[in-house]
Nucleic acid binder design. Structure first.
Lengths: 175, 175
DNA sequence: TTCAATCTATACACTGAGTGAATAGTGGAT
DNA sequence: ATCCACTATTCACTCAGTGTATAGATTGAA
């Protein structure tokens, strides 16, 4: 998801501390996986080095020492460019499920079972996300929908593939 | 996609050399992004350390020296477990597009434009993948379909989200 | 025939991403 | 008095990934 650009994006609202940034991040993007402090500070250090942000002087007194980080003009430009440069999803055409399927066929393992197991897991996850949507605000509803749509995409692919396993195996072993 | 497990999967067919593994990998999974040699050997080194594979003696003569790698029993078990342990996709509920949208709204940037740009890119990529499918074998058709399904999922999410941008912005700024 | 290009094969140094533990001050409850 | 939770950052470590260096073998054209 690109943590450094996300943090930079948060800093483009207002200057802030590593500690606070971690919490902002978690609030908006950390559902299911909070950002570790260690990662925040090493990411900030890299961005300072790259002059996307700068550290304002160390503040002492009234609690532990802390540094406020401020975005630079170059940083602002970087955020804008990130926002309006579209991603190319599946540019590499790689997916774990695809890899597993091919490896299973190559090693004469039970690819059909693998797809079944994944299908079951997907259905369970869909029920879970659907339940999660019930009592959530719009932000989390949209998060869940993103997940749900992609699970549905995977399920369609599983159907398609499991119907073609025999032919796929033949092609793989012949070539 | 987990390169090390994929390489281990290839080794569970037959013992092989790093060099050959790279080419096998590229053949099956490298469409759009080949695996770098450097990565092959560092991954193999880690797997030797973890006793998932072992290096058979150095072979000299008739070309540059080379080592054949063989999977261990523990390695075989690892592959089986990988194959039949389903993944939980979007477990973290994180996506770049989602992050961009939220950051754009928080910084009062043009989220609508961002989604439009991404939609256009997605449509172009769909045409490209559809064209690519024309002259491809089943393996690559399925690869493309996987990509296509997930792009469609993203497109659905874009529609949903762009229709709710105003409300989302209100919620984000109020909370 | 020779020499340049290409292929086979591996190693190494470096950056970035990510995790977990360590450190240290402050404020409030028991 | 002390124990705990919170604020805030640093450090050491591993894994993933890229690019480059090295070096012998093969092949084909001037």
């Amino acid at each position: 998801m690109n943590n450094s650009l996300t943090l930079l994006g948060l800093l483009s609202r207002q200057a802030s501390y590593g500690y606070d940034l971690k919490h902002s991040y978690d609030r908006y993007f950390g559902t299911g996986k909070a950002l570790a402090f260690g990662q925040v500070y090493s990411t900030l250090a890299r961005m300072v080095r790259d002059e996307l942000i700068r550290a304002l002087g160390e503040e002492t007194g009234g609690g532990p020492d802390r540094k406020k980080y401020e975005i630079t003009v170059a940083g602002q430009d970087t955020v804008r460019e990130w926002l309006f440069t579209p991603d190319v999803p599946s540019e590499t055409l790689q997916s774990n499920l695809f890899a597993k399927t091919v490896i299973a066929l190559l090693t004469d393992d039970d690819a059909d079972r693998l797809l079944d197991v994944q299908r079951a897991e997907h259905m369970a996850r869909m029920r879970q996300l659907t339940r999660l949507k019930q009592d959530s605000d719009l932000l989390h509803v949209l998060m869940c929908d993103h997940g749900l749509f992609h699970i549905e995409a995977d399920l369609r692919w599983i159907e398609l593939t499991s119907a073609r396993l025999t032919q796929l195996k033949k092609e793989l072993l012949s070539a």
